[in-house]
Every structure is written in structure tokens, then in C-alpha cells.
């Protein structure tokens, strides 16, 4: 798998997410121990880390599903921890969150899943316009034919793509992908990687991609950070991150990657 060409449209002067000294513990168990992170406009940032290191917790804090214990989380110029519910909702509309297990609404068809955010947040949108938009994002994820199916009738990879389509439909400025390729076969992985890059190009989004799949990291990341022991210890391009004698970094590489 070829490494990605770094997106020329990244604006290093504009931070869409800026996190400083973020700490989070569950009871006595410290998950995040002082995380600093910047996401620049138009950038795909890959967060690597072993299972249970708190990657999902990190993006849940970014989207206000969980709250940090200490530190500041600034998203699009607003401090997430301080927002009133109404302002938090307004901010959330600009963030697309693709869940680790897709989190499609089981009781609704694909069409209803995609219409769900639209019905509530684009109220003056006409019936036809909504249908067109649904078809447009379905086409973008390459699943136009699934529109009338129930989530239970889809494969894992298809569910993932519908999940991504559902978050794309409100044209977010920021995309958060939680393990977009976990549990998928290599070919579907490549499709998803291409989709992530396509989304970056087409919608000019900035994204955080969480993964422990290094193929994916290399294919989609403009920049890679590695979460070790509750902090980001390595940062840079894919090659830079793994150019290290740190045993934890090396074992991550060797275990994951044979090329």
C-alpha cells in the first residue's frame, strides 16, 4: 500500500481542534494523562494506539459525549466543556462522528437512517431535495442500491459506509472516524481508506481517524500521532513516527505490518 501524498490544501494557520493537557480517569483508572493535540484545517490526522488506550474516549470528549477531568478542549473556537446544551448541539452539527460499530438505527431503513438528522436539522428542506441529498451521499459511499434495506441486512463494511454517509449528510467541517477499518477484509479496508480520502477532497473536511491498522494509517494520514500510556508520544508523518527505537512503537509496527 502506497503512502499517502500529503494534502496540499492543509491550512497550518487554522486549527479546528486544539486540546491542551486533557486528563480523563474512570474511577481510579487514568485513561488520558495530559493529551495535547492540534488538528489543522483540511488535514487527516491518524491517531494510533493499542486497544484500551483511550482513543475512543478522546473523540467522545471532543464531541461532548464524555467530559474531561482536566485540560481544555477547543473545537472550532469553542470550549466543549463549557458549552450550554443548545450551543453544544449547534457545534455537534459541524462534527461528523462515525462510530466504531457504525451505530446505525436498527429499527429504521437506510433511507430513514440518513433522513434522521435531516428531518430535524434541515427543516426547510423539501421532500425532493432531501431525497436527492440522500442519494448523493449514498452514491459517495458507493451504496446507492442499499437505500431500502434494513441495517441488519447489510454486511459490516456496508454498515460502516452507511454510518459514514449518515455523518456526511449534514456536511460537517470535522469528521471523527472511530476505527473505520476494524474487522474488515483487506479489500474493503482499501475501499474505506479511499472513501476517507475522497471525503477529505470532496467536502474539504478535517478528520481524526482512529485506528490500529497501519495500512489504513499510511493510506489516509497526512500526519500520525501515537497514543502511548495516556499521552501522545510520537508525532509526524507515518515514517517519522515509526523511525524510533522505542520498543512499544517497534512492536506495534512489527506486529501489524509485514511488507
Amino acid at each position: 500500500m502506497e503512502a499517502k501524498e500529503i494534502n496540499p490544501n492543509i491550512d497550518r494557520n487554522e486549527k479546528v481542534i486544539s486540546i491542551r493537557g486533557l486528563k480523563k480517569a474512570f474511577d481510579d483508572f487514568e485513561v488520558l494523562k495530559g493529551v495535547d493535540l492540534d488538528l489543522y484545517k483540511g488535514e487527516n490526522l491518524v491517531v494510533l494506539g493499542r486497544s484500551g488506550t483511550g482513543k475512543s474516549v478522546l473523540i467522545k470528549i471532543i464531541s461532548g459525549l464524555l467530559y474531561g477531568d482536566e485540560g481544555s478542549v477547543n473545537v472550532l473556537g469553542q470550549d466543549v466543556g463549557e458549552l450550554k446544551p443548545r450551543d453544544l448541539d449547534a457545534l455537534r452539527l459541524k462534527i461528523g462522528f462515525s462510530f466504531q460499530n457504525s451505530a446505525l438505527y436498527d429499527s429504521m431503513t437506510v433511507r430513514e437512517n440518513l433522513a434522521f438528522p435531516l428531518v430535524r436539522h434541515a427543516k426547510n428542506m423539501g421532500e425532493q431535495e432531501r431525497e436527492d441529498l440522500i442519494l448523493y451521499v449514498l452514491e459517495a459511499v458507493g451504496l446507492s442500491q442499499a437505500i431500502n434495506q434494513m441495517p441488519s441486512e447489510l454486511s459490516g463494511g456496508q454498515r460502516k459506509r452507511i454510518g459514514i454517509a449518515r455523518t456526511l449528510i449534514l456536511k460537517p467541517d470535522i469528521m471523527l472516524y472511530d476505527e473505520p477499518t476494524a474487522g474488515l477484509d483487506p479489500i474493503t479496508c482499501i475501499e474505506i481508506n479511499n472513501l476517507i480520502n475522497e471525503v477529505q477532497r470532496r467536502f474539504n473536511t478535517s478528520s481524526i481517524i482512529i485506528t490500529h491498522d497501519l495500512t489504513c494509517a499510511r493510506a489516509v494520514g497526512d500526519r500520525v500521532v501515537m497514543l502511548l500510556d495516556g499521552q501522545f508520544q510520537r508525532e509526524g508523518t507515518f515514517e517519522e513516527v515509526f523511525d524510533s527505537n522505542d520498543e512499544r512503537v517497534q512492536s506495534f509496527y512489527n506486529y501489524n505490518f509485514i511488507d
Partner: peptide, 20 residues
Amino acid sequence: AELGSMRVTEQIDAMEVSAT
């Protein structure tokens, strides 16, 4: 059971992050 499975599969979180 319905709400429980929606909680477990993060469908409730998904609603919340879509500002519903």
C-alpha cells in the same frame, strides 16, 4: 430490551452527536 440494545450499540450516543 430495545433501549438497552440501543445504548449498548451506541445508537443513543449517535443520536446525541447528531444533535437530536
